[in-house]
Write a protein that binds this DNA or RNA. Structure first.
Lengths: 228, 228
DNA sequence: TTAATAATATACGTGCATGTATGTATCCTG
DNA sequence: CAGGATACATACATGCACGTATATTATTAA
């Protein structure tokens, strides 16, 4: 909708023609529609993969959850693997943005350190996030031909998290005893694993347990000794 | 083959009759055969589930890996779920035995503490173990109707690990800041998670990283400060 | 408004893993 | 050694998710 502006030129061809009162939108409605359904399909795939796992997930479910049939799916993606990889890219991009945002939010180094600590605790509350990242990892391990590709996509995220940890550790004058990337990966790994245990048996691993264990691990790695 | 002999008393019926020189085997050869194939099938299932995951695993593969066809499978198990649960029980029993064994091996409390520490490091080297326990957990999370059942089977193992940790911590005079069960579960969780990360990208999480991170976590929880 | 093109739905064919039914060999009883 | 039972294999039926081919609806251009 948007009565907005300027000749459509769907792609390269800027078809000049007598301008009139109502100028066509820059982006054709068709393209907008396509992108919208792609997003809906990706969102639906995210939910479905997290709920059922990659193997058990049915394209039918993904499409219908997005409000379409399988026809729409195949118009946008080649296969289940295809949308899986597309999801991974979206995922990595989002999480990198999230990390960057975290760095800029707090003012003082001490506050940033606390924010990072809290970040890992919060990470352990996002069920979808844990299950999805598990699917990515399991897929990589079990599909040698896709392993390299998945690893390559994941690495920027690892590096990004590692940078964050290194920077914050450096700010508070602490030397990491291992590579910052491993440290960040380790923290994320524990966070994921604890939520998983919590989901399996929340009577054995409680929310407080998670908070405590993650905090202890964080302090052990970043050499800080905050309250508690 | 086996020129052996005589009365099998397959189950309860101790058919008394004139005893002869060679006393018969208590277990009939048939039962022995059955148990042998069950074991082979379970071993094959263990490999297959770890390699492909529960969903992708095919009964055909399990059977053939064990040296049989699907006929033998269905003679011993009702379905894929059935062997999955059977595997879980075997698994829990074995790991509990393993933990008990660990406790009795070392002499002094200090040695036992070190052995426990090393135990978690070694845990992070068993690929099949990690992938299988992941499958169990994911299955529990994703199948509400089976969740309670799986949780019930897992709990003795958790309790057992918790006891071990508590006992050893107590021996060296340390008070655990959280429940011993959570502590043990947390340690196991980190161990699993780190191996998983290592399998995904062994350039980012190296063997030394795993050893260091696990050690740091262990010391943070059990309050010890051993060398490196 | 109409013709052309893109987006999505419907219909159809196919493969594959499951489960069952039946056949065959091995083992036990007497 | 014969008849019956048990362990396993082979053959068959079914269902289900996938992928493709075709039809229908929405959008754009003239």
């Amino acid at each position: 909708m948007g009565s907005a502006v300027a000749m459509s030129s769907t792609r390269l061809l800027a078809t000049q023609h007598g301008i009139r009162g109502r100028t066509p939108p820059v982006i054709s409605r068709q393209r907008a529609r396509t992108e919208a359904t792609r997003k809906k399909l990706l969102a639906a795939a995210e939910k479905t993969f997290a709920r059922d796992g990659f193997e058990a997930a049915r394209l039918e479910d993904i499409a219908s959850l997005a409000g379409y049939t399988r026809g729409a799916f195949y118009a946008n993606f080649k296969s289940k693997e295809d949308i899986f990889f597309a999801l991974l890219e979206q995922w990595v991009a989002r999480r990198i943005a999230e990390v960057a945002e975290l760095l800029g939010r707090e003012e003082t180094p001490a506050k940033r350190l606390r924010a990072l600590r809290e970040h890992y605790v919060q990470l352990a509350k996002d069920r979808r996030l844990v299950l999805l990242s598990l699917e990515f990892k399991l897929f990589a391990i079990r599909h040698p031909e896709a392993h390299a590709r998945l690893r390559t996509r994941q690495r920027p995220l690892r590096a990004c998290g590692g940078d964050l940890v290194r920077r914050i550790a450096h700010e508070v004058g602490h030397d990491l005893p291992i590579s910052s990337t491993s440290a960040a990966t380790g923290l994320g790994a524990l966070s994921n694993a604890l939520l998983l245990e919590h989901l399996v048996d929340n009577a054995i691993v409680t929310d407080q347990d998670i908070r405590f264990l993650l905090g202890a691990f964080f302090d052990a790695i970043l050499g800080t000794h905050t309250n508690r």
